[in-house]
Design a protein around this nucleic acid. Structure first.
Lengths: 137, 137
DNA sequence: GTTCATGCAAATCGTTTGCACAATG
DNA sequence: CATTGTGCAAACGATTTGCATGAAC
């Protein structure tokens, strides 16, 4: 029996709302928020709800049509190591590990020269298995 | 006149709670959450409140003693470009720009060999001024 | 004694979910 | 017609804030 919140057993059906969400996202390079989609689509679907937007975003990501980028406002972790450094995030144990790789500043200047950007800093994070989890796999 | 939520006009005063927050964060490499600090410190300050934790985190960040890393679990911005690519975030106009830099996979294998990590992917984001804002500065 | 910091509770923001009804295949 | 998708509203978790009281200088 199918329970609340579970993925459907059968294939996804067609939905006009989901179709338009993907179209809108493919037509822009602005990396919109869920709320932007909601405002934009309410013109076409006056009774649209946020639940529908979020549910469809989830499905589209699962289908590989979208990526989510979480720059910022989410769940914060704190770090008293204020020297610049990179991070490794373990997929299995959720550890966040400071790396002591050298910071490569040459890439910043390259980006500035090539594209007209003024680069103040860059952040690099790796994901995968930390040494402990990797040795248990 | 000083209004609610504003920074104090004078210098920050000493606070035992803030002192302990910084001590705890300097004693760990686990990149704790605000809630971890709260649980941990309630033993010493039974009447501690979350408001105090968050306010002090903000002050410590402003003083340069802490960094906040947002490795979000939540949706934030969406991207229909599902090919791997890097991002540039403009400090002034908040634009998020897809970069077509080549993805450098060599660094993944290096990290695996050197430290025993299994690297599945990496994310690289730059911050600074986008070409448009840079030309106006 | 001035004003910054705290505790508490309520408010806020983005996101998720339960449920009854509508749409799809 | 079996089951997925929707709208609505309420629930949620992390964070922020108003306000009266307590602590620092």
């Amino acid at each position: 029996m199918r329970v609340r919140g579970d993925k459907p057993a059968g294939p996804y059906r067609h939905s006009r709302q989901r179709e338009r969400i993907l179209e809108l996202l493919r037509d822009t390079r602005a990396h919109p928020t869920a709320n932007w989609l909601f405002d934009r689509l309410r013109r076409e679907f006056p009774r649209l709800s946020m639940g529908t937007v979020y549910r469809n975003i989830g499905i589209l990501i699962e289908q590989g049509h979208l990526n989510r980028c979480a720059f910022g406002n989410a769940f914060d972790r704190l770090d008293a190591n204020v020297r610049p450094h990179y991070h490794f995030l373990c997929d299995r144990c959720d550890a966040i590990i400071d790396l002591d790789l050298p910071i490569d500043r040459t890439i910043d200047t390259w980006l500035g020269k090539a594209g007209g950007f003024v680069v103040r800093r860059h952040d690099l994070e790796f994901r995968g298995l930390c040494p402990t989890c990797a040795s248990q796999a």
